[in-house]
Design a protein around this nucleic acid. Structure first.
Lengths: 208, 208
DNA sequence: TGTACATCAGTGAACGCGCGTTCACTGATGTAC
DNA sequence: TGTACATCAGTGAACGCGCGTTCACTGATGTAC
């Protein structure tokens, strides 16, 4: 769109984003099902009632956060499973991409890891839906590679699902490393690399 | 011990267990960080203050639940990675054991999946500690098999960690299937079976 | 451009409610002799 | 076995507090003419 938003709309979006940002910070130390609407508005500096101009409830805000968090993850996917280089180079690149994503968006990663199995059903649903979509995209990407020749469709989806889950496991391992500091980061990268290598080995020898 | 507990001790343990049981039921629909002490005592039918005779806080109760939940999982581990039969038989048996465990202790499985990355630090820590212990036990079990010959120690631990995480992923998939009903259960079993088969293939062709 | 009216994001007071925690207590159970 | 005292799991009243939600409001922004 070329015409800029009206002043009113722009201000509203700004407040909405401030609410999302404040919630994300508060969610580093608690889970969504205990997040209070007043906490969030207090952190932003608006009246509690202003919350209702943007979200019906904290669960509703949570669903919006899912879209934000997994939206930021989306561009990373294509790159992670892209085809250049040999297996080891691709694995190293994927682990590196995950590590940098965690550095750039730690709160988003934590939110997804926490609420994927969390206590708020609509948010769990939203995450499940997005991750299913991711797996299908990874599958499509895999199907484009020559290695995928002869693979059954459902085996490809199985592999894609394994990659997506492994990506999340690795991301949350890097997140812990970020908190603990020390050599945890290298240990996480090393573990993730070898696990991906084992999966790749299985993939190469998969009986088609 | 041969002598039975005194009446007082027995009654105290009974109340404590009732608190744990009630909490576990309440935690099916919310997460620990939003669980109220009064909710729990109300469900049991004791005064709120009675709670303090057993736990300092709901976080403390959470740690006790971790021990209960992962204790029930413990006997299953040896059986899951035991050596009898060929690869496919072993995989089928493992998937079956996981499915039955989820049927038998759904609330325990949900609790662990939810609080592993939940908002209560001491509980996350307790789960992490137990899962590390599990991975080391699986590693020891794997090391006893002939297939492990020539494997480096850290590669064995890497594989064990992958198995433990995969077990949890599968368990939580079965849990969702339990909620949704329909053919989800078979689909979950099928996916888990093929993912374990891929891991096994990688294991067989692992470059030692 | 100027005027008159409509819209609506954010306000602030008020509400009833359930929370965690304290305290002194009760009465059944345990123990010493 | 009986008695006198100690222990301690569970009670119930009371507290101050922050919660989510309602409501009528204000005043800047938007729109029609």
């Amino acid at each position: 769109m070329s015409h800029s938003l009206g002043i009113r709309q722009a201000q509203k979006q700004k407040t909405r984003q401030a609410l999302l940002d404040a919630a994300l910070v508060l969610l580093e130390e608690q889970s969504l099902s205990s997040l209070g609407l007043r906490e969030v508005t207090r952190a932003v500096g608006v009246a509690p009632t202003a919350f209702y101009r943007h979200f019906r409830s904290t669960a509703d805000l949570g669903v919006a956060l899912v879209e934000e968090a997994l939206g930021s993850l989306h561009p990373m996917i294509g790159a992670t499973v892209s085809a250049d280089g040999d297996t080891d180079e691709r694995i190293a690149r994927a682990v590196d991409l995950i590590a940098h994503h965690v550095d750039a968006y730690p709160a988003h990663v934590r939110f997804i890891a926490r609420e994927r199995h969390g206590g708020v059903a609509p948010v769990r649903e939203a995450i499940r839906r997005e991750l299913t979509r991711f797996a299908e995209e990874v599958k499509a990407e895999l199907a484009g590679h020559p290695e995928a020749e002869g693979w059954r469709d459902d085996d490809l989806l199985m592999l894609a699902t394994l990659y997506v889950d492994q990506m999340l496991m690795t991301a949350s391992l890097f997140l812990e490393a970020l908190e603990y500091g020390g050599r945890e980061r290298e240990r996480a990268a090393d573990l993730a690399t070898r696990q991906l290598r084992l999966i790749s080995t299985g993939r190469e020898h998969w009986p088609k």
